[in-house]
């Protein structure tokens, strides 16, 4: 009575694709960071599903490290957003073309 691991893969693929679409089509930088969180969670679901299926705790330890990286990414990303908002008083991503050639 175990849910096959392919179901978890499908769920994770759906969430990951949603995150990719969100990164590509949203214009709000905060929404883009939220979509990155979606992608990280999709990979975490995969890790835990395979850790349970293969009876190997390494996957759960990797989720732990992913959490660490996600926390660091959020801290730095939100600091960048605050700095951007201070310089241009908008967080619409189309207003930022400073690095465009």
């Amino acid at each position: 009575m175990m849910v096959p691991v392919s179901y978890y893969l499908i769920l994770s693929a759906i969430v990951f694709l949603t995150g990719v679409v969100g990164v590509l089509i949203r214009r709000n930088i905060i929404a883009i960071l939220l979509s990155i969180e979606l992608m990280l969670n999709a990979t975490n679901i995969n890790f835990v599903a395979f850790s349970d299926r293969l009876q190997d705790l390494g996957g759960q330890v990797f989720v732990f490290f992913t959490l660490t990286v996600a926390a660091a990414e959020v801290a730095v990303g939100l600091a960048i957003i605050i700095a951007l908002h201070r310089s241009k008083s908008t967080i619409n991503i189309e207003e930022f073309n400073l690095l465009k050639w």
């Binding site: 590509l24 089509i25 949203r26 214009r27 709000n28 905060i30 929404a31 960071l33 939220l34 969180e37 969670n41 959490l67 996600a70 926390a71 959020v74 801290a75 939100l78 957003i81 605050i82 908002h85 967080i91 619409n92 991503i93 189309e94």
Partner: peptide, 30 residues
């Protein structure tokens, strides 16, 4: 604890600090 407690609170804090709830259409490069 970490995602729901720390990361999301940080997001909501920044959203409310920057006070953005307007002009949020989709990207023109859709």
């Amino acid at each position: 604890i970490i995602y729901g407690g720390a990361i999301l609170v940080l997001y909501l804090f920044v959203v409310m600090l920057l006070n953005v709830n307007r002009d949020d259409r989709y990207h023109s490069q859709w």
